[in-house]
Write a protein that binds this DNA or RNA. Structure first.
Length: 118
RNA sequence: AGAGUAAAUUGAAUAGUCGCUGGUAAAUCUCCGAAAGGAAUUACGAGAGGAAAGUCCGGGCUUCAUAGAGCAAAGAUGCUAGAUAACGUCUAGUGAGGGUAACCUUAAGGAAAGUGCAACAGAAAAUAACCGCCUUUGAGAAAUCAAAGGUAAGGGUGAAAAGGCGAAGUAAGAGCUCACCGCCAUUAUGGUGACAUAAUGGGUCAGUGUAAACCCCAUCUGAAGCAACACCUAAAUAGAAGAUUAAGCCUGCUCGGCGCCUUCUAACUUGCGUGGCUUGAGAUAUAUAGUAAUAUAUAUCCUAGAUAAAUGACUAUUUUAAAAGACAGAACCCGGCUUACAGAUUUACUCUGUUU
RNA sequence: GUGCUUAUAGCUCAGCAGGAUAGAGCAGUCGCCUCCUAAGCGACCGAUGGGGGUUCGAGUCCCUCUAGGCACA
């Protein structure tokens, strides 16, 4: 992921979750905020609630989301903070690659993140 | 064929594409950072479990304490012999209990060193008292009452009642006596031992249960933990020394003090990074010793090391009734214990039924 | 990761050194009182986290599992 940096700090997450715009899909939801930096880089954060599943399952979902994001990375606009969350009401067992791929497509469509050139 | 007991194994495989983590090598001197340091490119080969879990025991390792040893306190363990670095673990046995059996369970020292407790019920919960039974004497017309003595059978409650059952015996009774069973002691034999078997003797067989109640005896234990600990960088703090005045405060001025600047030292905290970190009571195979746990020897092998935390995604094929669907994810490392677990396989053995 | 600690009615707590029908307050239900409600009075309802063991007997003692809580950067 050459164009993207991972977010790690708590204050970064709080900034995006409070100021960002909210989009939702069937299984995942996203907060997106345009950044002030002029760098052509996106900041990605993924968070999954502690009570939903144990650490291994959570990491698995994180990996799947990151992998899907990698697929869309070249098609979306640059200079944004993006945070993905797992919906609390969704069943953990539905966390397959295909489901999340479709969800992410709908979210990026709603947010009009996909560049029109491609 | 059915039901069951014990022990052991397994916990999908192969190929391709794209990624993740760290390792080795090469090259570039490119990027990030205040610095320590980190990142990026290419190639090669590596990358979760039988329980990695619970954190219930034991050890290594590190720091602190300690001249050395002992006692006390506190805690743990508790049949015997062996194994082990050690253990509360394991192996083989003994006793007790359970099961038709294969087999299973067992914190199993001491109650006569002492203290406590045993609710309710019951005469009484450990000293043997009370009621009762019997004999004699006295009173009375009699029923009965009183006194003295002999007894422990009975007193039906309780989880538990002073060895059990029967006979003989007696005024009434009693291990008072006898047979059998149990109990205790001594001796002999077998066994390394726990213990077993046999014989002899004992009626002072007169001391119930509880120690996962206090306790006694024997054995063991210094304390804390990798968020330990060691090092590096920066900032702030304290102390010492130097330099003295460019700004500021106590105060209007002087002196003085604080502070500011530089250097050194110290311990703690915050943040960053590195080490600790994986070659070890190591794994596999074979042989020897031993019933076994295990030990010894030889050969071969090197097999995760993360830190917002790596094992994934997709495609194809194979095995399969069906294709990953059980429990579950390393965090310093080992030896155990305990608990969870879909499906599949192997070996040995027991009982029941049917047929020959 | 490491070290501790707790679990008793719907809620907050008692329960001594094993011997109870497990107690109190609030809450709930019914009744009395009142013109009605509140307050008050009376009655009722309802619990030892799960599983083993020791013991005649376990809420209490021991083991084990489960679920919470706390501390340490």
């Amino acid at each position: 992921m050459k164009k993207t940096k991972m977010m790690k700090k708590n204050y970064e997450f709080r900034y995006v979750l409070s100021k960002g715009d909210y989009y939702t899909g069937k299984y995942i939801e996203a907060f997106i905020k345009k950044s002030n930096n002029k760098e052509k880089i996106n900041f990605l954060g993924i968070a999954i609630g502690v009570k939903l599943a144990k650490a291994v399952k959570r990491n698995h979902i994180k990996r799947i989301i990151r992998e899907n994001y990698q697929f869309y990375e070249n098609f979306i606009k640059e200079g944004y903070y993006i945070v993905f969350l797992w919906k609390k009401k969704a069943n953990i067992k539905d966390s397959t690659f295909q489901n999340i791929k479709e969800d992410m497509k709908t979210i990026f469509d709603k947010a009009k993140m996909i560049e029109e050139n491609i």
